[in-house]
């Protein structure tokens, strides 16, 4: 059961209140924006939003439900044909009340109540991406990932002629990860495909790295565009320079 409205009716009697609210809602849908007292704006908002919800459903029964409140057929048509479809991607909150300065004369707090003309952020983002978000369409997201995965080895296939290419996604001396995560025979170096870093056995990050690709040697890794982690680069340079001196 809806909570009864506190305080006296607008206008004095229940019928008077119904008429005032119906007239306010009619004017609101006719003009899109009306200035009224804050009390009336707050009372007309739930009524008008329920009418928009009915307009969104858009069948004959809901049209008749709207016509019980709004007597002007032009406004009913505008509500069903323009306003309802416009809010198809917005779940409630169709109206906005902004307070303005009190009225001259009786100092009544005034407000502007208007139809929200902006699209929701989610709706705009979806329009820009031309896709639905994963939470809205759970079936589609895993599929696209699968297709991407299917495409990546396929393109690698085309790049290299040999049958071994599926096993070597980064050229000669590399090996795709095994399903159980263990090290392929003769490929001890782990590579992280997203950060483009490789880790030699015994280095600080080797144990915690999940290998996305394995390399046979450091040269093969560097040939594929992979680097040592920044913390280990200097040490290696010093080693190589000392080797040069000796």
């Amino acid at each position: 059961m809806p909570t009864p409205t506190k305080g006296p009716r607008l206008g004095g009697s229940p019928t008077h209140e119904r008429l005032m609210l119906a007239n306010l809602a009619t004017s609101l849908f006719e003009h899109g924006k009306i200035t009224t007292t804050e009390a009336k704006a707050k009372r007309v908002r739930p009524l008008a939003e329920k009418l928009i919800t009915k307009a969104k459903r858009g069948d004959l029964h809901n049209r008749r439900q709207i016509q019980r409140v709004i007597r002007n057929k032009d406004v009913v048509h505008r509500l069903m044909a323009e306003i309802g479809p416009f809010y198809s991607d917005r779940n409630g909150g169709y109206l906005r009340i902004t307070r303005t300065l009190p009225r001259k004369g009786d100092n009544a707090p005034m407000a502007v109540i208007e139809l929200v003309s902006e699209k929701t952020v989610t709706a705009e983002a979806e329009a820009a991406r031309k896709t639905k978000f994963a939470k809205d369409q759970p079936a589609e997201a895993p599929k696209s990932v699968e297709t991407q995965e299917a495409e990546a080895p396929a393109s690698a296939d085309e790049a290299a002629d040999s049958a071994e290419a599926t096993e070597a996604p980064f050229g000669e001396g590399s090996h795709a990860p095994l399903e159980d995560g263990s090290q392929p025979e003769g490929f001890p170096i782990k590579g992280n495909a997203s950060s483009k870093l490789y880790h030699v056995p015994g280095s600080s990050h080797y144990e915690r790295t999940t290998a996305e690709v394995w390399f046979a040697s450091e040269e093969a890794a560097e040939a594929a565009g992979f680097q040592l982690p920044p913390s280990q680069r200097e040490a290696k340079d010093e080693e190589s320079s000392s080797e040069d001196e000796s």
Partner: peptide, 19 residues
């Protein structure tokens, strides 16, 4: 201007032209 009220001078409220 009074708080929580559309500005009577420029007519804006939270970056939106209201009046």
């Amino acid at each position: 201007k009074p708080q929580h009220v559309a500005c009577p001078n420029c007519g804006q409220y939270s970056g939106r032209q209201v009046v």
